[in-house]
Computed example of a mutant assay.
Amino acid sequence: MTHNPAIIWDVDGTLVDTAEQHFRAWAKFAAEIGHPFTRADFAATFGMRNPEIIRKLFFPDAADPRCQELGARKEDLYRASVREEGTQLLPGVGRLLSEFAAAGYSQAVGSSAPPGNLELLLGLTDTRRYFAAVVSGDDVRRGKPDPEVFLTAAAKLGADPLRCVVFEDAVAGVEAAKAGAMGCVAVTFVGHHSAEKLRAAGADLVVASLEEVTVAQIAALVGGAGTVN
């Protein structure tokens, strides 16, 4: 196992922000099946895997194949929107990816998103080269706040979870990181969750933008220094 810190990135809200494309895709999907879909519904389910969202909001008893079919339709709508509008890295992300790579830190993606979405987003932002592993929602059975996605990413990197630092923007993601015994940096830039809620979930460092984060801070997080101020 590597001694250097290993970095695991959430994608939506952390690397990029395509929340509006997700909202519009869910709204179109809901209209197609004759169900309402509100901003409150979106906020209550943001970061969940599609089967969980579909059962929570639309069809509580839907079997896995039905969830897969419905989720695929929603993701088709989402990817079409992203291809049309494009996306870009959030502030500070490009620098951190480069600096972590230069420092010899292995990096992975740990996301609830389907693999097709991740392939599209990493391609549009030209960041796939930074990641030794990409773990999607299809690679795990349990979504965040269960730590499975991050533990799977750590295993693929050959990294001790205690030396991993997760970058997240959502309460469920922070909870997943801490359940996996990992360090966690939470960013409030896209505004889905308040700094207070992210701290309460266990984030070791909460920032308004990843422009504030340094490699030295991340090294300190896994060096036994505890919470970083």
Rank of each mutant, 00 (worst) to 15 (best):
A30H: 07
A25I: 00
F29D: 01
A19L: 07
A44K: 12
P5E: 09
T45Y: 05
D10H: 13
T18K: 07
A43Q: 12
P36M: 04
D12M: 08
F42E: 06
G47M: 08
I53E: 10
G34Y: 10
M48A: 11
F29M: 06
F42R: 08
H3V: 12
A25L: 03
I33V: 15
G13K: 11
W26E: 04
A19T: 05
A40D: 15
P51F: 04
M48T: 08
R24C: 10
H3E: 15
I7E: 00
F46C: 02
F42A: 08
M48I: 03
F37Q: 04
G13A: 04
A6G: 14
I33F: 11
N50P: 12
T18C: 10
D10Y: 12
A44D: 14
E52G: 05
I7Q: 01
T38F: 00
D10A: 13
F37T: 03
A31T: 13
R39E: 14
I54E: 10
E32G: 14
A19P: 01
I53G: 07
A30R: 10
F46S: 08
P5G: 04
R24F: 03
T38I: 02
R49E: 11
Q21Y: 07
P5K: 06
A19K: 12
D17I: 07
G47A: 09
G13F: 02
D10T: 13
A30T: 03
G47L: 07
E20L: 09
I8T: 11
Q21G: 02
A43V: 05
T18W: 02
T38Y: 00
F29W: 06
L15A: 14
P36D: 02
I33H: 09
E20W: 05
F46Y: 13
A30L: 06
L15E: 01
D12W: 06
T18Y: 06
I54H: 10
I53W: 03
W9Y: 12
E20D: 14
E52H: 05
T2D: 09
D41P: 09
A30N: 06
R24Y: 07
I7S: 01
F42M: 09
F46A: 09
A43M: 09
R24K: 12
A25K: 05
I8K: 08
W26T: 03
G34P: 10
W26Y: 14
W26S: 10
H35R: 15
R24N: 14
R55I: 08
M48F: 12
H35I: 00
T18F: 01
N4S: 14
W9I: 01
A44N: 13
T45N: 15
W26K: 06
R39Y: 03
N4K: 15
A25P: 06
F29G: 01
A6K: 05
R24L: 14
R49A: 12
H22W: 04
F37R: 06
T45K: 06
P51T: 07
H35N: 00
H3T: 15
K28C: 01
A25V: 00
V11L: 12
H3A: 13
D17W: 11
P51H: 08
Q21P: 01
P5I: 05
A40I: 08
T18G: 08
D17N: 15
G13Y: 02
G47D: 09
F46E: 02
D17T: 07
D12A: 03
D12L: 11
I54T: 04
P36I: 04
E20N: 10
T2V: 13
A44C: 01
P51L: 06
F23R: 14
W26A: 02
I53Y: 05
L15H: 04
P51A: 06
R49K: 15
W26P: 11
H22A: 07
